[in-house]
């Protein structure tokens, strides 16, 4: 790149006084030496001045009215569309929730724990209290104290002491017809 080409890059900075002092001096020296650079600098300044003095156009008188119309006609459907979108999201969420609940409920009722065939095989399906559990070391044939777990021992006639049987008052049936 020649000196003149390099100086061309500084034209705008020179015209705007934004060159550092040493480059500014260098540019001014180049201006004195090169007529071409001098003419070019003058013309760039003229172009810039012409640009800043170009006619300023103004918007049409009904600009604001048209803008208001545009805002109202375009934004109203947008709002309703947004509302529709929001409601459709909510509705689809509710539908999904209902379907999910229904499916989960069905799955739970059809689960293997609840099927009759396997019901007996699982101990945890119907938890049994410690008293009710059968001790595998005890022979059920000899002693089965847990065979009637819910039965009141005192109401069991087989377990009533013979003496108590003797003391039991005898009931007399009286013929009331007489």
């Amino acid at each position: 790149m020649g000196d003149s080409d390099r100086m061309k890059n500084y034209i705008s900075d020179y015209l705007e006084n934004s060159l550092d002092p040493s480059t500014h001096k260098e540019f001014e020296d180049a201006l004195k030496r090169s007529r071409e650079l001098s003419t070019m600098t003058d013309r760039v300044a003229a172009v810039s001045a012409h640009l800043s003095n170009l006619k300023k156009h103004t918007c049409s008188d009904d600009f604001s009215v048209k803008l208001r119309e545009k805002i109202h006609t375009t934004s109203e459907p947008l709002i309703s569309r947004r509302t529709v979108l929001r409601y459709s999201f909510a509705a689809s969420f509710v539908i999904i929730l209902v379907i999910a609940t229904f499916t989960i409920t069905n799955l739970m009722s059809d689960s293997p724990e609840n099927t009759p065939t396997l019901q007996g095989s699982t101990q945890n399906a119907n938890p049994v209290s410690a008293e009710e559990q059968v001790d595998p070391l005890v022979d059920e044939g000899e002693l089965n104290i847990n065979s009637k777990p819910n039965e009141n021992a005192f109401s069991d006639s087989s377990r009533v002491q013979p003496e108590e049987k003797k003391n039991k008052p005898k009931i007399k049936y009286v013929d009331q017809k007489k």
Partner: peptide, 17 residues
Amino acid sequence: VKSRVNRARLKLQEDLD
């Protein structure tokens, strides 16, 4: 930006010579 402004001015002065 500065470089583009300068080049644009140079181009305009060339075109509007």
